[in-house]
């Protein structure tokens, strides 16, 4: 039998007050939530926006995080008595940034970005991406800073003693080793960021949750939309975790004995 016809038949029956058994009801709600009117396209579109949000926020987060981490490490590693004024100012700014961002809820930050700073903007999704990226940057900065400090100081001494400059030493020796050390923490941060994009729905971003809610309010049935997006988030996180594991195995190459 044709599924669409079966669905119509069940809907009619339900409207006329007939009791449906568990499987009939399950089928009806499932069909209504995902298939009727090609609603699955809306979920995919929502997922698309969520992924876009994640990528943009991730890029902002990494750039900001690495920048802040490098400034702060460079400041802390200066030789005694030779401190650079400019670096000191930047270091102060970085400290304020991480303190404020880590000290306030992301929801509050998003509300401020959206309704105070960019209150005129109509593209709330991108405002959300910016807010989440800036939030993530503070956490990435601390992770990266920890990673840079975790590399034995002898490594950069060896690099400098060979006559390499500070940047080459960082680029070829310290950062690759730091990256390997922080990958688990960084992966964790990215998964958190991916899930945190759901908060953007609260400021009017049109990502996955937005569509699930819209479908829910149209059909007066939220169970399948919400369960559906939960499964979609989970599936995406599983893919991310798998990718992270693969990368970690590749970077462990040099640990072979």
């Amino acid at each position: 039998m044709d599924w669409a016809q079966y669905y119509l038949q069940l809907t009619e029956a339900a409207k006329s007050g007939q009791e449906l058994d568990f499987f009939e009801n399950f089928f009806r709600l499932f069909y209504q939530a995902f298939i009727e009117g090609e609603r699955w396209r809306l979920y995919l579109r929502g997922m698309g926006v969520t992924l876009q949000l994640t990528v943009v926020a991730l890029c902002i987060g990494i750039v900001l995080g690495v920048l802040v981490a490098v400034i702060r490490t460079a400041h802390d590693q200066q030789r005694l008595g030779r401190s650079n004024m400019l670096l000191g100012v930047f270091n102060g700014l970085c400290k304020v940034y991480t303190t404020v961002i880590r000290g306030t809820p992301m929801m509050v930050q998003l509300l401020i970005w959206s309704f105070v700073i960019f209150s005129a903007s109509r593209n709330k999704t991108m405002v959300g991406a910016l807010g989440i990226g800036i939030n993530s940057g503070a956490y990435v900065a601390e992770i990266v800073r920890g990673g840079l400090m975790s590399v034995d100081v002898g490594q950069s001494e060896a690099g400098r003693s060979l006559g390499l400059n500070y940047f080459d030493t960082m680029r070829f020796i310290v950062i690759p080793q730091a990256f390997k050390n922080i990958l688990p923490a960084l992966g964790n941060e990215f998964i958190t960021l991916f899930k945190d994009t759901s908060l953007v729905s609260a400021i009017g971003g049109t990502e996955l949750i937005y569509f699930a809610k819209a479908i829910g309010s149209k059909t007066y049935e939220v169970m399948f939309p919400y369960l559906g997006i939960a499964v979609m988030y989970l599936a995406a996180v599983l893919v991310l975790t798998w990718l992270q594991g693969k990368l970690e195995r590749r970077l462990r190459q040099s640990d072979r004995r």
């Binding site: 034995d152 002898g154 060896a158 400098r160 003693s161 006559g163 390499l164 070829f172 080793q177 040099s254």
Partner: peptide
């Protein structure tokens, strides 16, 4: 100082080879 260090080799107690290379 980098130019100067290029002419002075140094060997450390703990080798300090770069494990990522």
């Amino acid at each position: 100082i980098d130019k100067v260090r290029q002419q002075m080799g140094m060997v450390f107690q703990h080798f300090n080879l770069f494990p990522n290379m």
